Computed example of a mutant assay.
Amino acid sequence: MALEKATIDIVSGSKAGNRIAVLFNPTDYTIERSNSYKTTSIPGLSGPLIHFINGEADVLSMELFLDDYTDAPKAGRKSVRERVDELAGLLEIDNDQHAPPIVRFVWGKLSFTAIIEKMTRKFLLFQPDGVPSRASLSINFKEYRTLPALLTNPRLQSGDKSKRRVIVAGDSLWLLASREYHDAALWREIAEANDLDDPRDVVAGDWVLVPPLENADGPLGRL
């Protein structure tokens, strides 16, 4: 079975359609994902309330190896120095889109559309005249998704429509705001909508109105 070479395809900008072949396939790669949370301290509780804010983009990390000694450049082939400069150029601002280009790392069934978030260049071996002949590149690709792609699975419920909720035993406006708005500090919005001067003037069984969050431009949904 023929060895399939990994490539970095340029997706956007003035060089869209160009393909950079990886000299040696990576020996391994890592895909990392994280979420952003906000913590809110509430007086009297033993710990903060934790609210989900949003998911972060996947990050694909790998190390690429470049070597002129084991794969010496021939006529029409690029040297290590030229290959490093070509890859580092993907971090530069493209004149057509005023931002670094979007790229796609492709290797077998892996196809990862991203921007290059970070690249560390390490030169390991040099020719007698000081020209690098061996290098390693540590690259972080950060997943790129368009707004329509992010909205493919829209949320079914948000804080931009009025709701009625019943107070249960042990409940409070702080906890209600945390559940509905994912921000306990917004309990005042609920208190004002229900003409409550004291947020503690609610007991189990009371129904309260949970209003939409609004700004000067219109409804602002929060999750």
Rank of each mutant, 00 (worst) to 15 (best):
residue 38 K to C: 06
residue 36 S to Q: 14
residue 220 L to K: 03
residue 148 P to K: 10
residue 43 P to A: 15
residue 44 G to A: 15
residue 85 D to K: 06
residue 48 P to W: 08
residue 187 W to D: 10
residue 143 E to N: 05
residue 3 L to V: 12
residue 39 T to K: 12
residue 31 I to S: 08
residue 169 A to T: 07
residue 158 S to W: 12
residue 130 G to H: 05
residue 50 I to Y: 05
residue 127 Q to N: 11
residue 183 D to L: 02
residue 133 S to D: 10
residue 124 L to V: 10
residue 9 D to Q: 14
residue 208 V to I: 13
residue 103 V to G: 02
residue 200 R to I: 06
residue 96 D to A: 15
residue 1 M to S: 09
residue 144 Y to D: 01
residue 133 S to P: 00
residue 10 I to G: 04
residue 15 K to G: 09
residue 190 I to L: 08
residue 149 A to T: 07
residue 26 P to C: 05
residue 21 A to P: 00
residue 63 E to G: 11
residue 170 G to W: 06
residue 160 D to Y: 04
residue 118 K to F: 11
residue 39 T to F: 13
residue 213 L to M: 04
residue 27 T to C: 09
residue 195 D to Q: 12
residue 220 L to D: 03
residue 208 V to R: 01
residue 144 Y to E: 03
residue 91 L to F: 05
residue 188 R to Y: 11
residue 75 A to L: 09
residue 74 K to W: 01
residue 163 K to G: 11
residue 32 E to I: 05
residue 87 L to I: 10
residue 74 K to C: 04
residue 193 A to L: 09
residue 151 L to M: 08
residue 33 R to G: 14
residue 94 D to V: 01
residue 111 S to W: 00
residue 122 K to V: 15
residue 157 Q to L: 15
residue 213 L to I: 12
residue 186 L to D: 04
residue 18 N to Y: 10
residue 169 A to D: 05
residue 48 P to I: 13
residue 140 N to C: 09
residue 114 A to P: 00
residue 145 R to G: 02
residue 62 M to T: 09
residue 187 W to S: 09
residue 134 R to L: 09
residue 76 G to I: 11
residue 13 G to Q: 06
residue 89 G to V: 06
residue 15 K to V: 07
residue 13 G to L: 07
residue 71 D to N: 12
residue 99 A to I: 00
residue 133 S to A: 15
residue 179 R to C: 10
residue 211 P to M: 12
residue 51 H to L: 05
residue 214 E to K: 09
residue 160 D to Q: 07
residue 80 V to K: 02
residue 33 R to H: 14
residue 28 D to C: 06
residue 144 Y to K: 02
residue 142 K to W: 04
residue 17 G to M: 04
residue 51 H to T: 11
residue 189 E to Q: 14
residue 141 F to V: 03
residue 43 P to N: 15
residue 126 F to W: 03
residue 24 F to G: 05
residue 174 W to Q: 11
residue 93 I to Y: 10
residue 116 I to M: 05
residue 60 L to V: 01
residue 168 V to R: 04
residue 94 D to S: 01
residue 64 L to T: 02
residue 4 E to P: 00
residue 177 A to P: 01
residue 161 K to Q: 12
residue 98 H to T: 08
residue 52 F to L: 14
residue 176 L to F: 04
residue 140 N to H: 12
residue 181 Y to N: 08
residue 188 R to K: 15
residue 30 T to G: 11
residue 12 S to K: 03
residue 1 M to N: 03
residue 52 F to D: 08
residue 79 S to V: 02
residue 36 S to Y: 10
residue 34 S to W: 02
residue 88 A to Y: 08
residue 114 A to S: 13
residue 217 D to C: 02
residue 222 R to S: 13
residue 27 T to F: 11
residue 116 I to N: 03
residue 76 G to A: 14
residue 4 E to F: 11
residue 18 N to A: 11
residue 182 H to P: 00
residue 111 S to L: 00
residue 142 K to D: 06
residue 216 A to G: 14
residue 160 D to P: 00
